[in-house]
Amino acid sequence: MPKIHVSTTVNGDTVEFLCETQETVLDVLRNTLGLTGTKEGCGTGDCGACSVLVDGRLVCGCLMLGVEAEGKEIVTVEGIGSPDRLHPVQQKFLEDAALQCGFCTPGFIVAAKALLDSNPEPTETEIRYWLAGNLCRCTGYDKIVRAVQDAALEMKGQQA
């Protein structure tokens, strides 16, 4: 089957790629574009390790076809933060030891950023339910929730 040509934006760069019709955004990011920060934990939308932002909305990269990326703006973990400064969510994950193996971390970082973009002062319950689509098997979530709380405080301080 011939491949399909797709034009899209990834982390601010205009990107073109060819993909098979059954390939997902996750496949394209990892295998075609070399953006391996986005992880595959299940391929069925249950673990959130492949969380990316598509036009600002949090989606599982494994549940969206590569061809559906046409004309969209995609942000991955590699596009969060800048070379001279980590995003506050990234920084607080480090300070609060909110990762152990680190495999789920990119998904959590993207999901937590999306939460704080839309809800700058989430309650603990709101954080826990927002992140319920991201599985972590190492931490028991305690330090992840605290890191998101601390990032929210930090971002609030930056705005003031």
């Binding site: 934990g41 299940c42 954080i127 319920a132 599985l135 972590c136 028991g140 992840i144 605290r146």
Partner: peptide
Amino acid sequence: GFLDYRMPVASDLPMI
């Protein structure tokens, strides 16, 4: 799969 093999998610747990 993770949908039917139900591991704890953040909203299932309190702080520990």
